[in-house]
């Protein structure tokens, strides 16, 4: 029922979602907006390599909702916290039967020069990542720099590994629809967003 309501909210837009008695702010549809998840930007396209050697492109992932973030295995602050939160989310999505077919998690290696596919696979296993649904992806250092810059996070000389602890929610059309801060991550809210977007993606297929 909750899934249905949220999907309805996303499809019908904010007008129907509002309490009729509440004051209504006029929303300018500068970009098409679907309820609570505006189109923030187009997610950068990529071709990367999974830990099992498969080539994975963002085009391959189209049609599925995904949560994307950046990690490196030596990271002692934000990355383990981000990964722990994605691990919790993975369990909840699996329980709802959404993991894999409709929703993916993707952790992009921030330090490919140091993090080999084997090192990433060990790191992923440490967080219980399901290799079919939680991808650890790796590119060249140049490709990694380009990707994080496209997400608005520039690598700075001497502090290449300092990065934003953000998790991006990407819809089936490769558009960023929400950005979560690791520090203020609300699992139930994120789950609601993912379930809603997956419902929309499901109808579009």
């Amino acid at each position: 029922m909750a899934v249905l309501s949220l999907a309805g909210l996303l499809l019908l837009g904010p007008a129907l979602a509002r309490d009729a008695s509440a004051p209504v702010a006029t929303e300018w549809r500068v970009h098409p907006v679907e309820g609570r998840l505006p189109i923030i930007r187009t997610a950068p396209a990529y071709v990367l390599t999974a830990t099992d050697g498969r080539t994975v492109s963002s085009a391959d992932l189209a049609g599925k909702v995904r949560l994307e973030t950046f990690v490196y295995t030596r990271c002692q602050d934000a990355c383990p916290l981000v990964s722990a939160k994605l691990a919790r989310l993975q369990r909840r999505l699996a329980a709802r039967g959404l993991l894999g077919d409709r929703v993916l998690l993707a952790s992009i290696a921030l330090d490919p020069a140091h993090d080999s596919p084997a090192a990433l696979a060990r790191y992923a296993a440490g967080f219980g990542a399901d290799p079919r649904a939680w991808l650890y992806l790796r590119g060249t250092p140049a490709e990694t720099r380009r990707l994080r810059a496209a997400y608005g996070d520039l690598a700075r000389p001497g502090q290449e590994l300092a990065h934003a602890d953000l998790i991006f929610l990407i819809d089936g059309l490769n558009r960023v629809r929400e950005i979560y801060s690791q520090r203020l991550f609300d699992l139930e809210q994120v789950l609601g967003d993912v379930v809603g977007l997956a419902a929309v993606a499901g109808r579009a297929r």
């Binding site: 702010a25 300018w28 930007r41 608005g152």
Partner: peptide, 22 residues
Amino acid sequence: GGFAEFTNSGDLIRVFKNPPEA
């Protein structure tokens, strides 16, 4: 008046205007 949301690099995402009663 109202408020607007932008990406960190300055691209507009969306705008909300205040309601007539406030």
